[in-house]
Simulated scan of single mutants.
Amino acid sequence: MEFSLLGIGEVMAEIRKGTSGDFKVGFAGDTYNTAVYCARALNQPGSVAYKTSIGRDPLSASFIDAARSEGIDTNQISTNPERNIGVYAVSTDASGERSFSYWRASSAARGMFTDHDDVRPLPNSRIVYLSGITLAILQPASRQALMNELRILSESGQSLIAFDSNYRAQLWESTDAAQTCLSEMWDIADIALPSIDDEMALFNETSEDAVISRFNEKTWEACAIKRGARGPVSPFLEPHAHPEFKTAEIVIDTTAAGDSFNGAYLAAYIQGQNETECMLSGHELASRVVSAPGAIVSQSRR
């Protein structure tokens, strides 16, 4: 069996304060969010798989149930009996911007691709998707082992590698380490889904044009550079050929805006849609996601 998409990364229990003052628990994480939204868009249960490591705690067990309810194949998820799933709490301000508190330093996902989980073989997948957060949480040796395997998959034509740098400085041991690693990852990747603010911050670029020019230097299988509410740009299209991207009418919570864009974009790509259609699909879903609280909105709000 070949998966349409294999996501790799860390999922965490999300604790969010409800309108009535009580706390609700869900599950989220950048690459997991993308996997969920891609699975929903494809609507082919089992076509999207997710690879992570969890514990034997009750939250880990609940996560498996949640992933399966989304039609995600969970057979690539390993269990580390010595660690638990990560946890974070999130609050939003009046404009929808978020603040987070994390309990993830010893999460099971940080032990991926070491003694508990070998990098090879990854399951047969049309697209393997990961992010800079996936790489940042791994030990350096595990990180490099994963990238080496991804390069083999890409160069052999076995899988397309989709990547979002999703740069979070606090997760990296140093800026130099992040720059070196993510530069190598962009060299490996076939499908580029960066956010322009992340790229400017990581590589000290002072203009959006500098980022766009850098991504124009490589030939991609697909590429959409996200710019938030203004919509993405693509090296495949001339500036005048980009469609009009409508701004979300209501912004409640910007959590997973980029993740949902990636999920819908990749689903459209898998279904054979062109670059313009892929970008419109991604932006439309992201606009709906930011109008509701939480990283993964209920099915009724898709």
Results as ranks from 00 to 15, higher is better:
T79Q: 14
S62C: 13
L150S: 11
E97T: 10
A49M: 03
Q44P: 12
A105M: 00
A141R: 07
R83L: 02
F100N: 00
A35S: 13
S91V: 09
L153D: 04
P58E: 02
T114W: 09
R40Q: 04
S95V: 03
D57L: 03
Y88M: 00
Q139P: 02
A13T: 06
P140G: 11
I127F: 10
Y102V: 00
C38M: 04
E97L: 01
N124M: 01
G86I: 10
N84L: 04
E82M: 15
G96E: 08
E82Y: 10
Q139I: 09
V36H: 07
Y32M: 11
L42H: 09
S20V: 04
L150K: 13
F100I: 02
Q158E: 13
V25N: 05
K24D: 11
G157K: 12
D57Q: 12
T134H: 01
F63G: 02
Q139W: 12
A105H: 07
S69D: 12
R110I: 09
D73K: 14
V119C: 09
Y50P: 01
A89V: 06
R151T: 11
S101I: 03
G157T: 13
S69I: 08
S62W: 02
M12R: 08
E97I: 06
F63L: 12
E149Q: 15
S131T: 14
V119A: 14
Y37K: 08
Q76I: 14
A145Q: 15
Y37D: 10
R56Y: 11
A136S: 14
R40E: 06
Q139R: 09
D22M: 09
I64R: 08
I152K: 15
A108M: 03
M12D: 00
D65V: 12
Y102C: 05
M112V: 06
S125M: 08
Y50R: 08
T74I: 07
L42W: 06
G29A: 10
Y37I: 13
G96S: 01
V48L: 09
A35W: 03
K24V: 12
D115V: 12
D30P: 02
R40T: 01
R56F: 06
R56I: 15
S53L: 03
S95F: 07
P123S: 13
Q76N: 15
D73F: 13
T74N: 10
F63H: 13
G55D: 03
S60E: 01
S47R: 10
T92S: 11
L130Q: 05
Q144K: 04
V128M: 04
G157P: 15
A141P: 13
I72A: 08
A94R: 10
T114R: 11
D118M: 14
I137T: 00
N43T: 11
Y50N: 05
T52E: 01
P58R: 06
P123D: 00
M12C: 04
S95M: 07
A105V: 06
R16G: 06
F27K: 01
D57Y: 04
T134G: 05
A141H: 11
S20A: 09
K24Y: 13
A105N: 10
G157M: 05
